[in-house]
């Protein structure tokens, strides 16, 4: 059995890391907003979904234009990613302005309910538009980056099987890593990133430093939503078919990843996402084997979440979270 598990490891790692980076980038959106407002922005999964639809719509339109479709697919994808990020970023900012800011001083439960309301609103809005334009709310985008690449992992050691990846996997992986590295740099090394951390730690005092707190909060929503929307495009490219409800379960898992890493902690969200992705793919590949056929691959989430529960029992603040100890 161990041998079989070992053999599958290269493929598990490739699939897991790819899925994991998707979780990780979405988890960033949850964790940034939580860090600054202590609000669980449940609409974030729907921002991701909206991004997937906006991106797919753009790709459909662009591939329909003769001279554009002659361009290299990667140029088209980058353009679509940037435009979608801009649009979903503005969407996220708008949601904060309209739905959360007026409730800034309300009990924390209230904006949470509003967030759920925004979720449904976005789902139905996207569904309505998709049905209007395509006659069906399940949409398949143009297929790009479909070539398969073989990785000769058996050459490293004979215990491994060869792994194979679609070239879109690489696109997803590279784009997601770029987004994470840039964000990490922004938050830790730039002036506005520092302001963001300051606002997260003490909003009132930050305003005494001439920081316009509302501006920083808008910026946070813009960045988180832009990343989420761009990830939606990557998801659509990777998996082909999307519907208005993909944001729910994916958002839930990304949120889980954020909690696993320590909510409010940016590097924690990245780590949590990657771990969750790998655990899920590991379970998907090996669960049948490990349980002698009692549980099939479809129980992968049970496995992944069982590990999450165990981690949280022993480390409730998450892997990279620090126990809350306020100095008076």
């Amino acid at each position: 059995m161990l041998n079989d598990i070992l053999q599958s490891i290269p493929q598990v790692l490739i699939d897991g890391l790819t899925l994991g980076t998707v979780y990780a980038v979405i988890a960033l959106g949850y964790t940034m907003v939580y860090g600054i407002l202590e609000l669980i922005n449940f609409a974030h999964g729907e921002i991701f979904m909206t991004g997937a639809f906006i991106g797919t719509a753009m790709l459909i339109v662009l591939t329909g234009i003769g001279w554009v479709s002659a361009l290299p697919a990667i140029v088209m994808l980058i353009t679509v990613l940037l435009l979608t990020a801009l649009l979903t970023g503005l969407l996220g900012m708008g949601i904060e302005r309209v739905a959360y800011r007026p409730l800034r001083n309300a009990p924390k439960l209230i904006p949470l309910i509003t967030a759920i309301g925004i979720s449904f609103l976005l789902q139905d809005l996207v569904r309505f538009i998709a049905e209007l334009k395509k006659g069906n709310y399940i949409v398949t985008g143009p297929s790009l980056f479909t070539s398969q690449i073989k990785i000769n992992s058996s050459a490293i050691s004979s215990v491994f099987n060869d792994a194979s990846i679609k070239s879109s996997f690489i696109i997803v992986l590279v784009s997601a890593i770029i987004m994470m590295v840039v964000l990490d740099f922004f938050v830790n090394k730039t002036k506005w990133g520092m302001a963001m951390r300051a606002v997260a730690q003490d909003r009132e005092t930050a305003s005494l430093m001439s920081v316009n707190v509302n501006k920083v909060i808008s910026l946070t929503f813009f960045i988180g939503s832009a990343l989420g929307g761009a990830t939606g495009v990557l998801f659509a490219v990777q998996y082909g078919t999307i519907d208005p409800y993909i944001g729910f379960i994916l958002g839930l898992k990304a949120f889980t990843a954020a909690v696993l890493g320590g909510i409010g902690n940016i590097r924690g969200a990245m780590l949590g996402g990657l771990l969750l992705g790998v655990m899920e793919m590991f379970a998907s590949a090996n669960l049948t084997l490990m349980t002698g056929g009692v549980f099939g691959a479809e129980y992968k989430d049970v496995f992944a979440f069982a590990i999450l529960i165990i981690v949280l029992i022993f480390k409730p603040e998450g892997l990279l979270g620090k126990p809350v100890a306020e100095k008076v």
């Binding site: 002036k191 520092m194 951390r197 300051a198 730690q201 003490d202 009132e204 005092t205 930050a206 430093m209």
Partner: peptide
């Protein structure tokens, strides 16, 4: 009301934001 997780230098820089 020091920003507890910012360094001393970052705290000072916040003053000159």
């Amino acid at each position: 009301r020091i920003f507890p997780k910012l360094t001393v230098k970052e705290n000072l820089l916040m003053g000159a934001f």
